[in-house]
């Protein structure tokens, strides 16, 4: 039995509201903000409609379960020599179900030495996080992983 149902059957719904922590952002609530863009639209725009090929060269590190949807660590590393001839041009990070799916577009140069981007993102709900990487030869590689966002804990 789910906890919520359990509460209801026992008629202590009022008590339940007290233990639901407020999320600091409302997923799916109107208005959707000026930057609203779906993942499909963003992917199309970024890759000029070409799409991206899943690749082992792209390592996407996100937790399977987020401790807190407001702070989800994300790291993208790309296996690349980062030379003038062969380097990673851009690392895109998408939260596929956020109102604005775009999180970051990181433009690198050979002067980075290694290709990596790391930050923390907000996820409004359980969803896939995707990394789309543009290589200097114009090809697009990708990696994605699902992150489960839970609302829980005591405050």
């Amino acid at each position: 039995m789910l906890r919520r149902e359990f509460f209801k059957t026992l008629g202590v719904v009022a008590a339940a509201t007290a233990v639901v922590p407020s999320m600091s952002f409302a997923a799916g609530a109107a208005p959707k903000g000026p930057n609203e863009m779906s993942y499909e639209a963003a992917l199309k725009a970024v890759t000029n409609g070409k799409g991206a090929t899943p690749s082992d060269k792209v390592s996407l590190k996100v937790p399977e379960i987020a401790e807190n949807g407001a702070v989800v660590p994300v790291t993208v590393e790309v296996d690349s020599p980062m030379t003038e001839k062969d380097y990673v041009k851009t690392i895109h990070v998408f939260a596929t179900k956020n109102n604005n799916s775009r999180c970051a577009a990181v433009h690198l140069t050979p002067a980075n030495g290694k290709a990596m981007f790391s930050s923390r993102i907000k996820l409004g709900q359980t969803q896939d996080v995707a990394a789309i990487v543009e290589m200097s030869d114009g090809s697009f590689l990708s990696a994605a992983q699902s992150v489960k966002v839970t609302i829980g804990g005591c405050g």
């Binding site: 600091s24 903000g33 930057n35 407001a70 702070v71 989800v72 939260a95 956020n98 604005n100 799916s101 775009r102 999180c103 970051a104 577009a105 990181v106 433009h107 690198l108 980075n112 990596m116 981007f117 790391s118 930050s119 923390r120 993102i121 907000k122 996820l123």
Partner: peptide, 15 residues
């Protein structure tokens, strides 16, 4: 880096 509002409060950007 072009970034949007999905980045967490008190952000950290690393490369």
């Amino acid at each position: 880096m072009n970034v949007w509002e999905s980045i967490s409060t008190n952000p950290v950007f690393s490369t």
